[in-house]
Amino acid sequence: MKPPLPIDEQINHLVEQGILIGNRAFARCCLLDTNYYRLRGYWMTFEQNGAIHKGTRLEDIWAIHEFDRELRLWLWRLIERVEIKARTQFAYALSLGFGPDALSRAELFSNRKSYKKSMEAVEREINHAKKQGMPCVQHNLDKYGRLPLWAAVEVMSMGTVSSLYGNLRDDLVIEGHTGTVSEEIAAAFGIAAPYLKSWLRHLTMVRNICAHHNRFYNRLLKTRPRMLRRDKKWSSNREFPTFVTLKRIYEISWPDEWKEELRAFSNLISSYPSVSLRPMGFPNNWREVLGVDNPSTHES
């Protein structure tokens, strides 16, 4: 393994890599705030065939680092609404159709192995909430010895809800209803069930990137969202499909909030004029695609 390097030697190593350091005090502050190894991920944008582009400054790399930090906070805020609505609709449909203990009914789900794994996750999440002294958990456990579904979803992760929803039986119908449970939940988002299943999986991955403060900018995303027919031209393993997916969800559920958040996103981009959006797969007409009202002079 490589030996650890003091900050001054780390700065020297940046210079050896071909990164221009105009202010060593600034470089020192950057490396005290952010691990050298973490920063390494951000200068990959300036590399080709293992060599850093001539003229690359530490300030350019740091601008991407800061842009990415603020972008993750923006994404986290938008995904929060989706996560809470998914919890709500999942609990409402299942508990109304199959009772407060619907989660314990394995016959409602398609894949038993996946169901067992999800229920183990639910148990861990409930135990964690119990240790944290979460009032609704403690109340229900003290009174009933278990949690009704509408209380359980409040401690379940987005990944657990997504997995359980994706595993609902395709023929599962509530008595007296015409559509399947999966379709009824998806209808609350204004889309078909296959899309919601895909979008929740994708946004769970993005949410986890944000939650663990990992780099989102210029990243290959393993879980790609299923695109609507009109959006198929934007399909890729880059980040732009995430924004298209959020637009489709928000324009149905929270159209006013989408306009407001787009203004915040546009302002964020304007704050970092040196940061290119091309490594995230943004097309030249991305403002038109996402519905940004106020075009700026920022070039993607």
Rank of each mutant, 00 (worst) to 15 (best):
S182K: 14
M158F: 05
S163F: 03
E183H: 12
A192C: 07
S157L: 06
A188C: 13
S162D: 04
L172A: 13
S198K: 03
K197M: 04
I185P: 14
T180S: 15
W199A: 01
G176C: 00
T180D: 11
V181L: 12
L168W: 01
L164K: 03
L172H: 15
P194W: 14
S182D: 01
F189M: 15
S198I: 06
E184K: 11
S163V: 04
S162L: 06
E183N: 13
R169Q: 11
P194A: 11
M156W: 05
S182N: 08
V181M: 10
A186L: 13
W199S: 03
S157T: 14
A186N: 09
A188Y: 09
A186E: 12
S182M: 05
T180V: 12
I185E: 05
H177D: 09
R169E: 12
Y165Q: 10
S162E: 05
R169K: 10
S198M: 03
T178I: 15
A187M: 15
L196T: 03
L172G: 15
N167Q: 02
S182Y: 07
W199P: 02
L200F: 08
K197C: 04
H177S: 12
A187F: 11
A193H: 09
T160Y: 10
I191N: 00
E175K: 14
I174C: 12
E183G: 12
M158N: 04
L172M: 14
R169T: 06
G179W: 10
G190M: 07
A193D: 11
L196W: 00
T180E: 11
I191E: 01
A186P: 04
T178Y: 09
G176L: 03
D170C: 06
A188D: 13
M156K: 01
S162V: 02
L196G: 02
S157M: 07
W199C: 01
L196Y: 00
L196D: 02
I185Y: 15
N167K: 03
S198Q: 04
G176V: 05
Y165P: 02
L172N: 13
G190F: 05
I191M: 15
S162G: 08
S182R: 14
D171W: 05
Y165L: 09
L164P: 02
H177F: 11
S182Q: 07
T178Q: 15
M156Q: 04
I191A: 00
D170P: 03
H177T: 08
L168F: 00
A193N: 07
N167V: 02
A193L: 03
Y195K: 00
Y165I: 06
D171E: 09
S157H: 05
I174W: 09
Y165M: 12
S198P: 05
S163R: 09
S182V: 02
G179C: 11
L196E: 00
T180N: 13
L172V: 15
E183P: 09
F189R: 13
S157F: 07
I191T: 14
I174M: 13
V161D: 12
G166A: 03
F189E: 13
E183I: 00
I191S: 06
D171P: 01
G179I: 10
K197D: 07
A188H: 13
R169L: 10
M156C: 03
A192L: 04
L196V: 14
E175L: 10
V173K: 15
Y165F: 12
S162I: 02
V161A: 09
N167I: 01
